[in-house]
Amino acid sequence: MEILLNGDPHSIEQSCTIESLIVKLELDGKFAIEINKNIIPRSEYPNTRIHAGDNIEIVNAIGGG
């Protein structure tokens, strides 16, 4: 199914969770995640299912003033 990931179209398997998306993307370090502008607490990653058309933002800290 199709989702928007950081503003770009992205294909993932049906009934994927945030946890499995993180594994698939090989994300490490510290990040935070929003689905459709709602923040998903880290503890909820395994229980949060992604639906077709979801708008997912994954952010981290970078250099800034």
């Binding site: 990931l5 950081n6 503003g7 993307l25 090989e26 994300l27 370090g29 510290k30 990040f31 935070a32 933002e57 994954i58 952010v59 981290n60 800290a61 970078i62 250099g63 800034g64 003033g65």
Partner: peptide, 21 residues
């Protein structure tokens, strides 16, 4: 120390150290 919050680079710069490290 200030930091900015930005979209993660999905699948890029794997070798670059994370700022918070």
């Amino acid at each position: 120390v200030t930091v900015a919050i930005r979209r993660s680079n999905i699948g890029q710069n794997k070798e670059e150290p994370n700022l918070l490290e």
